[in-house]
């Protein structure tokens, strides 16, 4: 007992001693809001298919530090509203989040996209699609067949899990709220698994879940689903910078993204050997098999230049659906 108490006393003393000297690991320069900041704050929001978020952005951060000459503090944030509000008050300098989050942010914050992810060396390969899937033998082969059916979506604010499909449905003359029974499953994987389990007749989810993620995890097998709809491409994940930053810094970010990709980042020494992977086959014969860095949460090859106009498809979807989440009045 006595020794226990002594140990505790020592620990307490150690905590206080540690506090007295040394800077907190979370200490920050006092001013990060001016246009000549001492460091850049980089926020990443998990997208539907991101894994190991912070680790996968480390090489990207290293590239930006190299080209801007500024230290970059990266933070993974679970909620898009948190990042957008920090952008409104000019406290997040660079952010990577879903395309729909950019649509929302562009209304309230002074931000601009400078790059978007690119899954292969092919320009525009970062685009994603929404798939409509059903169980084999359900008799559903087109959007029109969905009238009166139970349909699983992901979330009303998900582009691939609802908005893109809703726009297509409306163009086909079907009201996604009235003419069918929408069920919001909360996530892509649950929408697919519950559709297979029979809770709904069809499901709309991001393509990668059906073609890659769920089969890779052993959660669905080939032949569990039949695809009856593929949406128009939706622009990929944007990298967004604050307009309050000096042109120099913005140019630095753009340069970092133009200059490096997952493969050349290895040569530049942006990732340790144990953080490297093999470049996959879709990246083309030139690089396939050579070592590559993780380059962002989606396993991208590179970030290609992007402009605000690239995100017009989202605005069109919002115009068609007049969805509540689109907040046209803002």
């Amino acid at each position: 007992m006595r020794t226990h108490l002594k140990t505790l006393g020592l620990l307490a003393a150690a905590a206080i001693a540690l506090t007295a000297c040394g800077e907190s690991p979370n200490a920050r320069p006092a001013d990060t809001t001016s246009d000549a900041p001492a460091e850049l704050v980089f926020a990443v929001v998990p997208t539907d298919n991101s894994e190991e978020l912070l680790a996968s952005f480390e090489p990207v951060v290293a590239a930006i530090e190299e080209e801007t000459g500024l230290p970059v503090e990266i933070q993974a944030v679970s909620n898009n509203a948190g990042v957008i509000e920090a952008q409104v008050s000019e406290r997040v300098d660079i952010a990577v989040y879903g395309a729909f989050s950019y649509y929302l942010a562009s209304d309230v914050a002074e931000v601009e996209p400078v790059a978007k992810d690119q899954l292969t060396p092919e320009p525009g390969s970062g685009s994603v699609s929404s798939l409509g899937v059903t169980a084999p033998g359900s008799g559903i082969s087109s959007l029109e067949d969905l009238t009166g059916k139970d349909v699983c979506f992901t979330d009303p604010a998900s582009t691939t899990g609802y908005l893109a499909a809703a726009a297509a449905l409306m163009e086909a003359g079907i009201d996604p709220q009235e003419d069918l029974n929408p069920v919001f499953a909360g996530s892509h994987d649950v929408a697919v698994t519950q559709m297979i389990a029979g809770d709904c007749d069809a499901a709309f989810v991001a393509e990668t879940f059906v073609t890659e993620l769920l089969p890779a995890r052993g959660i669905i097998e080939d032949g569990d689903t039949e695809t009856f709809f593929t949406s128009d491409p939706i622009p990929g994940t944007p990298m967004v910078v604050g307009s309050w930053l000096s042109q120099d810094i913005k140019d630095g970010v753009v340069r970092a993204m133009e200059k490096y990709d997952a493969v050349s980042a290895v040569e530049a020494g942006f990732c340790e050997e144990d953080a490297q992977r093999e470049a996959p086959a879709p990246w083309g014969e030139d690089v396939a098999g050579s070592p590559a860095c993780e380059w962002g949460g989606t396993g991208a090859f590179a970030f290609e230049p992007a402009t605000d106009a690239d995100y017009d498809p989202i605005r069109e979807i919002c115009e068609t659906t007049q969805a509540e989440v689109c907040r046209d009045d803002a």
């Binding site: 539907d48 894994e51 944030v77 948190g82 995890r217």
Partner: peptide
Amino acid sequence: SAVLGIVGAGGIGFLLHESVTSID
């Protein structure tokens, strides 16, 4: 403390959510 994830302060809540959404 999942609220810590909202402010980018990490924590177990964020990791839990990340592991569930990425089906890990």
